[in-house]
Design a protein around this nucleic acid. Structure first.
Lengths: 325, 325
DNA sequence: CTGAAAGCGCTTACAG
DNA sequence: CTGAAAGCGCTTACAG
């Protein structure tokens, strides 16, 4: 930077201003400075800038699992908003089993981000509360009392899916639930509410996040007596595993069993799968999370009380009226 | 840090040593220091540490597209090696159309990483050479003369796939190629070699990276006269789009047309898809890329001339002998 | 706009 | 091991 200032015949401070696109420098000299910087092969040192700049800085994003397409959608929404706001993103990646949640979130803190957004965080409500003093964290697709979050209305979405099945004439609808624990409970609640209101008994089968295990579990369920005529899965990955279980048993979908997923991930639309699912509006969730995070770093008095994100049902191949008895 | 030193009754320097897990401090005092740090809610400032530490630092990873499951596999391999080496990862994300390649790679440079690994980089060979002086960059799944890269043997893999189809009795095999340009040409070459050696005419249909467009393109191909009896796609996503095109036309797979993908992504194994494909050993590519990057930051004289990564054919539902004429 | 100075929170020799 | 000091490469007032 020293060199650039000398070469461009301006002050060190002016170069700094030009690099940051701040005002206080005329457009022509700015261009000149950037030109000299380019010629000298100068590359702005973000590390030093962040340290000196008192870390107004970046927004951290923790992605629990790179294999989950849904998070990619959320990330797209986050980036859209953060790009527009001119904010940098610091990204850390976790593991599908949640074992890296703490390390990933800590990594963001050590990078001195102004606020973090967590996709797929599996820490318990209590652990999350313990971490609250460490800095603002916006959770997505999950609500924890007293903490920030951006989520689409899972209760409404699951209700939508359940009512779709009931309207088709299904009575024995099983909900294939994610492992219990804090968070990610809305879908189950929506299903139970819709069933109860229809005067039917909810039937919840708890399963795993591991698809191979979901497939085994679904196979047991579907091979048992009083087989459900429809299965609503807690997410698309699980629903696809149910499709696999049906194939294993030689059962047809939707003729023998209807299947509904949840999320609207890319894979759900694939030819050969064409899953009826609930679009959870992941990109919008991301946008909202980013706006909340921005409000935190900008110390806005009141967080933007965000508009509710309403999921929508996407009807595809895997649901139909139940046949026979 | 000041506070911790005072509270723990040791020197500032000792705290620094303890934080970095370096030696020069006894295990007991180290524990004591870390305990005090925890109690004071201290969080190591990686930004300052990096700046002071002359940036031996982290390894950068650029991921072109978060929606591509294949990159997640590569990333897993990278992290496995880098974790073991105790290196931090700085991650930036591009866009599927390649429009963010420069920004993403620059972002790593500005974070002062010691070396970068690029997944799915679409810059031209010339642009890549221009960037070479900026710092070591290891490309994956792509070879550019004179630059570092980790790649599985695409020529061999495509040959494997083509020979599988030929062995089944197919004569009219079309290769659905990615858009031309620098890089990612090995698969096409392997296909052409296998066809020519068998005394058959290669037939290459160039398409796009956009799946909707691939589907249209495949529809045209399959609806035309002299329909191929088998299609080898440049990757799994394209192959799944071909499956969609077949469904659009009311053609069956593999009865009417066999389809082979490439990559061995998770989606290829999904029930209802069950694509015959070539496993490109993505995690191993990632491991190798990480090892090469490590050799760069450690200034090892000679880069580890890595063992060739041999892809393997995974035979599933979508290939069979051609029926009828 | 300039130019000299202080500071961001660490790490790294260095003499003791 | 300690303790004082210099330095990493920037940003940010501040007087001119």
């Amino acid at each position: 930077m020293e060199d650039i200032a000398r070469e461009a015949g301006v002050s060190r401070a002016l170069v700094s201003i030009a690099m940051r696109d701040a005002h206080g420098v005329s457009a022509t000299t700015r261009e000149h400075i950037l030109e000299v910087a380019r010629r000298l092969g100068y590359r702005h040192n973000r590390v030093a800038a962040d340290l000196a700049g008192r870390g107004a800085g970046a927004i951290g994003v923790f992605v629990a699992d790179l294999h989950n397409d849904l998070y990619a959608d959320v990330f797209d929404g986050i980036r859209e908003v953060l790009d527009a706001a001119g904010r940098r993103i610091v990204l850390t990646v976790g593991a599908a089993d949640g074992s890296r949640d703490t390390a990933g979130l800590d990594g963001l803190l050590e990078a001195r981000v102004g606020a973090s957004i967590g996709l797929g965080v599996r820490l318990s409500d209590a652990e999350l509360h313990d971490r609250a003093p460490l800095g603002p964290l916006v959770l997505t697709t999950r609500e924890v009392p007293g903490l920030l979050s951006a989520a689409s209305d899972d209760v409404a979405g699951a209700r939508l899916a359940t009512e779709h099945l009931l309207a088709l004439g299904h009575c024995r609808v099983t909900f294939l639930a994610n492992p219990p624990g804090d968070g990610y409970l809305g879908r189950r609640r929506g299903y139970e509410a819709a069933m109860t209101e229809a005067g039917l008994d909810p039937h919840v089968q708890v399963t795993s996040y591991d698809t191979a295990e979901v497939r085994r579990c679904a196979r047991d369920l579907l091979a048992g007596e009083r087989r459900p005529t429809a299965v609503l899965a807690h997410n698309d990955r699980a629903a696809v595993a149910v499709l696999g279980a049906l194939a294993d048993l030689g059962l047809r979908c939707p003729e023998d069993v209807s299947v509904v997923g949840y999320d609207g991930a890319e894979a759900a639309a694939l030819p050969g799968i064409e899953l009826t699912t609930v679009d959870s509006r992941a990109a919008e969730v991301g946008r909202q999370a980013a706006r909340i995070a921005l409000a935190q770093v900008d110390h806005e008095a009141e967080a933007p009380e965000p508009a509710p994100i309403t999921p929508r049902l996407i009807t595809r191949r895997t649901t139909a009226a139940p046949t026979g008895a």
